[in-house]
Design a protein around this nucleic acid. Structure first.
Lengths: 214, 214
DNA sequence: ACCTGAACACCGTTCAAGT
DNA sequence: ACCTGAACACCGTTCAAGT
């Protein structure tokens, strides 16, 4: 069999794959072009032949992180449930990979996974019988809520144990506030910071019920 | 009259004030300890006597950016409207100062403005007759939605003209997608990206109607 | 007590040079 | 065509030294 060409060592596929691994292992804070270069046995400057800059690289990496939400998604007969499942899937994918946050700051990537999510949701609102303007409005509301929540929840999503301990500490802090100034906080301190998944579900169901009229 | 003591040149008040100005003028990207030092005529290392690190400094700056939302806020007889006005005020403050995003990533600051916002909202849910667990759940939903949306909208909030042009360009891009793969996107391209304030209002009213039973 | 200045260990990015 | 290596212009942070 013919020898596989050793060149090219680098292309967008191997770069994004390595970036996703590096992000999953070491977190978003310690990601750098130099660290990515080390992992691939390549100088950091080599990436600039494949992407104009770090942001462009991370935008493609970010879209690939969304793949679990689109791969295998099947539309049902219930548009409301399609929106529900898609939002939950997007949230799960965003919490899994710490590059999610990056995506929130650069506008639409128009990469395949993002486009598929948009298509599925707009189609669902259409099937629900919404007027075009209302469908677009609803689409943006669900995306802002889903991505925004994920951006807030992501920093503590890495470890369930760390999350529980952190929430417990925060509750204890709230419980020690002066009750003259903050009576309502004091009264609710023990209940603050329920599971962020429960919080997300609560808002999601409220939006579905009101905007899709289920 | 006695001469004002020249020392201390630096304290938390003058540091935060200068940081807010620098952020408003030059944006979040070009903020650095060195740039802040230049503005105050001081070496960058001088701040480390007043804050443990850059994050701690920005957390206090972030809370001060919320001041417009709490200063002058008065509770009404309609809890639902109190929540509405507070969320709109928080959004406005967050879009005004580009440090908002920073706040979303570090957990609660427990600085005065953030605490006041929490107190007002929990109190409103109480007055609406909600059970304590439901009040806390609703509080977290509204905060996630408000802060999350602001984090997504902030990058384009600086200039209305830039925002309009950017949205127009994005719509044009969506309109050129292959309609075989993305029929719903193509059909809605002209309506995508309505005013982000309208989007926020739509979701906010849906959540108010469903969670506060208006 | 408070700030300076130099230093350390990093960054993203560019560009001539190598192969 | 693709990558290297050195260089540039930055970072946040520490710490001995100054006043």
């Amino acid at each position: 069999m013919p020898a596989k060409p050793v060149r090219p060592r680098l292309n967008r596929d191997v770069i994004c794959e390595a970036a996703l691994e590096l992000l999953a292992e070491s977190g978003a804070d310690s990601f750098s072009m130099r660290a990515l270069g080390d992992r691939l046995g390549v100088d950091a400057s080599a990436f600039y032949r494949h992407y104009p800059d770090k942001d462009a690289l991370l935008r493609e990496v970010g879209d690939r992180a969304l793949a679990p939400a689109t791969r295998g998604f099947t539309t049902s007969e219930d548009p409301s449930d399609d929106v529900r499942r898609m939002c939950l899937g997007v949230r799960k994918a965003l919490l899994r990979s710490p590059v999610a946050l990056q995506l929130t700051q650069a506008g639409p990537t128009r990469y395949p996974n993002e486009l598929r999510i948009t298509e599925v949701m707009l189609d669902a609102f259409d099937r629900a019988g919404m007027a075009p303007e209302d469908a677009v409005l609803a689409y943006h509301v669900f995306i802002e809520y889903t991505v925004g929540s994920a951006a807030l929840d992501a920093p503590l999503a890495v470890s369930a144990q760390l999350r529980r301990e952190t929430y417990r500490r925060w509750r204890a802090d709230y419980a020690q506030l002066p009750s003259d100034d903050y009576p309502a906080i004091r009264a609710h301190a023990a209940h603050l910071y329920p599971s962020s998944d429960t919080v997300f579900r609560t808002g999601l169901e409220a939006l579905l019920a009101r905007l899709l009229g289920t």
